[in-house]
Design a binder for these strands. Structure first.
Length: 879
RNA sequence: GCCGGGAUGGCGGAAUUGGUAGACGCGCCGGACUCAAAAUCCGGUUCUGGCAACAGAGUGAGAGUUCGAGUCUCUCUCCCGGCACCA
């Protein structure tokens, strides 16, 4: 028997204790059962759970619990992506060692996750900053080194000249270092890379097979890999210069080249900068921008003329040669041929520098207006003004020019990728040490297996200038494993994306201390459902796919792709409020501290800060962030309403892939629903107990045949119709409409009259309520597991709801004698008819025309056509 | 700049395949209960006109296909996410 009032704090503590005591979510490999591996992206332990975490993990938990009730052997693990920059920032700001800060955060966040009632197998917890985890990452990297899949080369970084340190993109604010405020420079340093480009073709091709992934994510990855076919060839350069090698995907436009451009870092630029101070200054200026692609693309396109010409490989024409800030040394060859007639960026640069724009492609019919912009089409075009290559379509011209350049300009047809090799080295302390020893005699050598792991010292003094590791001889001083001489240990650490590229495999066998993974991974992998933020659509999800293939090729795992199905959840947003001072300084106020006024209709009339009553300005909605002060602390909500209410709200407020706008009042609505549900079960529990007595506690009632009471039939039909929709919506992960259907069902049960006193009523009326309630509680169990656990028992069930069999739709309950159809006249709704289910068109037409309102709209006009959609609609076309 | 996504009442959202636009919830309005408030319960709620019956308009803007378009096609606007050292 349950109490009269819903007390989530008591219910949730009790139920969580029950799950813990019974180890309800521990799983083992069982080949006789169908497995289901449901994985949510593990959190960075930033300190407290935020709403994005709550949403992510609730979605994953609902799917896991649903699959368990469907009879699967479900693994749902959790862990910590524990290395990263914020720990170093915290260390600098509050003098706490990154390790202690991180472990404290993990402890706190773990309590929060438990409080939300997620069905995790905590026995498989993975923490990436622990040596038992990262040692295998180090071991794996040494394999890649030996295979030549890891290598060192120069790479460009953001350099803070005052702090003498490498900056993350995030630490560059308006082109300046976040701490020093000094203008950031680009600097080239030697870095470790992993050869992801060697797997580009496979990573691209297998996207076609990932039918369980959103098309948007697959498209983004395809574009990111960016496979293109083109030609690489040489332009001559005046003077005693080496030829200038370029790559182009449009050799067909080679006759339209009117200038050339090289990157600021190109050797040709460096050569002429020596005697040319303005050029040297320009190159210097190019070094002073941050290195993100977005920044490079958005900046003003500038160029500086070099004192020599390039020579056209076909005509021998002299072409002006520029150093340009939009040409990147890292892409292609660091030099581009410019065809302003048929490339928009080249066009804009040519316009700005008064360079000729030459048309060499035109539409098959008509002409292009090169005054308005470049003509970039390839379909239905023909080459023109191209001498020997005139009059060809795109493909023919491509082939002819490619052949010519191969013969006469040292050319070669090549396939290139936009994808670059993955730079995995970071000049930071709080990361996994790269297991390499640098010896002046023998070069860079992998740390021998028996010396692994290379432990990261955790008790360090942390100032924030340079990496502490580079200042610790006790860390870096070592002996060369080959010659035995003095050598220096690598002080760079791995990009944290390396840890997150294989954690999903480690969960299968987190306790294995003899290797990276064991054969248990073959049972659990691939992940059946992966859930995480859309912001990971490219990088993390591509790196993880890449690592899966690396591990496969090392013989560690069988499968090719790590994640069969992917659900990318939308961001959590909240309103942003601010005030501007007279000096123009902006102060943001948390929405929790703002009162919103409404007019008589409920429309927004204004907003004021609660503490002083003065108005604040709304800046619309945006992702919850510290800088905009619009975060909502989940903990406060859990304390006030309980985990089930928070879970229910998050699932109800929006479909998982959409953004979710926060609304405090709607949380109240979710709580109200649970209180009503509780009260409803409470009000019927005596009658249910009487019904269950003598029926082995299962409430079994024989519904064979049509029940005579139309109200009983109606409630049964409502319950089974709701279940049908709920099943469909669970399958397509539209949890918001699952909840909506549950609310409708609750309303239907609530309206149904049940005899309360013993012996004065029809047994069937109690039975139908019990059946409807059992369906309702069972289908809600994945979403609000604590309250469902208790209510399930109150309905007389003897098993735990987490292991209850999913209810089945009784088709018999849904059968109807008549259907309602809509009548349209010329596509406009004019009436409704109730008609027997199997009525033919003649009958439907007659019924439609017998409707007064329909007749009025038809009037004297003749009926030209009648369209009937069986069981739904009839449209009379008149005129 | 490039790539990807989105836009439906006062708000979040719903609408199997092109077939009743606005389910469900929030808010708001009115009522019941109460000394009062909260909570709870009942009724209403797309907009415009009308006491009403009813009529007209309506899914970011503009065009098109169709008996019929939120849904399909084209053009445009605005908002959001990613862009390789935030995770």
């Amino acid at each position: 028997m349950i109490e009269q009032h819903y007390r989530p704090e008591i219910v949730e503590a009790d139920v969580q204790h029950y799950w813990d005591a019974g180890e309800c979510f521990r799983v083992t490999e069982d080949p006789s059962r169908e497995k289901y591996y449901c994985l949510s992206m593990f959190p960075y332990p930033s300190g407290r759970l935020h709403m994005g975490h709550v949403r992510n993990y609730t979605i994953g938990d609902v799917i896991s619990r649903y699959q368990r009730m469907r009879g699967k052997n479900v693994l749902q693990p959790m862990g910590w992506d524990a290395f990263g920059l914020p720990a170093e920032n915290a260390a600098i700001q509050s003098q706490v060692p990154p390790a202690r800060w991180t472990y404290d955060n993990i402890a706190h966040m773990k309590v929060q996750l438990r409080r939300l009632g997620f069905a995790y197998d905590w026995g498989r917890e993975v923490t990436t900053c622990r040596p038992e985890y990262y040692r295998w990452e180090q071991w794996f990297f040494t394999r890649l080194l030996k295979k030549g899949l890891a290598y060192k080369k120069m790479a460009t970084v953001n350099w803070d000249p005052v702090d003498q340190t490498v900056l993350a993109n995030e630490q560059v604010i308006d082109g300046r270092g976040w701490r020093s405020g000094a203008p950031v420079e680009r600097r080239d340093i030697p870095q470790w890379f992993i050869r992801i480009t060697a797997y580009a073709d496979e990573l691209l091709a297998e996207l076609d097979n990932l039918s369980g992934w959103p098309e948007a994510v697959r498209t983004m990855q395809r574009n990111w890999i960016g496979r293109s076919a083109g030609v690489e060839f040489d332009f001559g350069v005046e003077g005693d210069n080496a030829p200038l090698r370029v790559y182009t995907t449009r050799p067909d436009t080679v006759m339209g080249v009117t200038y050339m451009a090289v990157a600021a870092e190109h050797p040709l630029a460096a050569k002429y900068a020596e005697g040319d101070p303005p050029l040297a200054a320009f190159i210097d200026e190019c070094r002073r921008t941050d290195v993100t692609e977005a920044a490079l693309e958005k900046m003003e396109k500038k160029g500086h003329r070099l004192p020599v010409h390039a020579l056209h490989p076909v005509t021998g024409e002299q072409l002006p040669l520029f150093v340009a800030n939009f040409v990147l040394m890292a892409y292609g060859t660091g030099a581009v041929m410019a065809v302003p007639g048929h490339d928009q960026r080249d066009w804009e640069f040519a316009r700005a520098h008064g360079i000729e724009i030459r048309q060499v492609v035109r539409p098959v019919d008509g002409d292009a207006d090169l005054e308005a912009g470049a003509y970039i089409a390839k379909e239905a075009t023909v080459s023109c003004n191209s001498g020997q290559f005139d009059g060809l379509d795109f493909q023919a011209c491509f082939d002819a020019t490619a052949e010519y350049l191969t013969q006469h300009a040292n050319g070669e047809r090549t396939t290139r990728y936009r994808l670059r090799d993955w730079g995995v080295g970071r000049q930071r302390y709080w990361g996994c040490p790269i297991p390499v020893i640098n010896c002046d005699q023998c070069g860079a050598l992998p740390v021998p297996d028996e010396q692994l792991p290379v432990l990261l010292p955790e008790n360090v003094e942390f100032q924030g200038v340079g990496s502490p590791l580079a200042n610790m001889p006790e860390f870096y001083a070592t002996a060369c494993p080959q010659c035995g001489g003095a050598a220096r240990r690598e002080t760079d650490t791995f990009d944290t994306f390396v840890e997150s590229s294989w954690y999903f495999a480690r969960y299968a066998c987190a306790d294995h201390d003899g290797g990276m993974v064991d054969r248990r991974a073959d049972y659990w992998l691939p992940v059946d459902q992966y859930v995480g933020g859309i912001e990971h659509a490219v990088l993390h999800l591509l790196y993880a796919r890449f690592f899966q293939k690396l591990m496969r090729d090392e013989g560690l795992v069988d499968v090719d792709e790590p994640f069969t199905n992917l659900l990318t959840q939308g961001m959590v947003l909240n309103e942003i409020f601010y005030r501007k001072t007279e000096e123009g300084r902006i102060t943001y106020f948390n929405p929790a501290d703002v009162d919103v006024q409404t007019d008589q209709r409920g429309a927004r009339a204004g907003a004021a800060l609660r503490t002083d009553g003065q108005p604040v300005i709304s800046a619309g909605i945006g992702t919850m962030s510290k800088s905009k002060n619009n975060g909502v602390d989940p903990q406060a909500l859990i304390d006030r309403f309980g985990a089930d209410t928070v879970r229910l709200f998050v699932m109800f407020a929006a479909p998982p892939e959409h953004t979710l706008e926060w609304n405090d009042d709607a949380v109240l609505g979710a709580n109200r629903f649970l209180r009503r549900l509780w009260a409803l079960v409470h009000s019927h529990q005596a009658a249910i107990a009487r019904l269950n007595a003598g029926r082995c506690g299962n409430g079994g009632f024989d519904w064979a045949g049509s029940h005579p009471d139309p109200q009983v039939r109606a409630l049964r039909a409502a319950a089974h119709a709701a279940l049908e929709r709920i099943n469909r919506d669970y399958q397509r992960y539209q949890f918001n409409t699952v909840v909506a259907a549950c609310m409708e069902l609750l309303n239907a049960i609530d309206r149904f009259d049940v005899p309360q006193a013993a012996g004065d009523g029809d047994e069937a009326r109690v039975a139908v309520v019990l059946e409807a309630l059992a369906i309702l509680v069972a289908v809600l169990a994945p979403i609000v597991p604590h309250v469902a656990h208790v209510l399930w028992r109150a309905l007389g069930q003897v098993d735990d709801v987490i292991d209850a069999r999913w209810p089945e739709v009784d088709a018999g309950a849904l059968e109807r004698d008549t259907v309602e159809m809509v009548v349209q006249v010329n596509g406009k709704l004019r009436g409704h008819i109730e008609i027997e289910s199997g009525a033919d068109e003649e009958r439907i037409r007659a019924a439609a025309l017998s409707e007064e309102k329909v007749r009025r709209h038809v009037g004297d006009s003749s009926i030209r056509r009648v369209i009937v959609v069986p069981g739904k609609l009839v449209n009379l076309v008149v005129g």
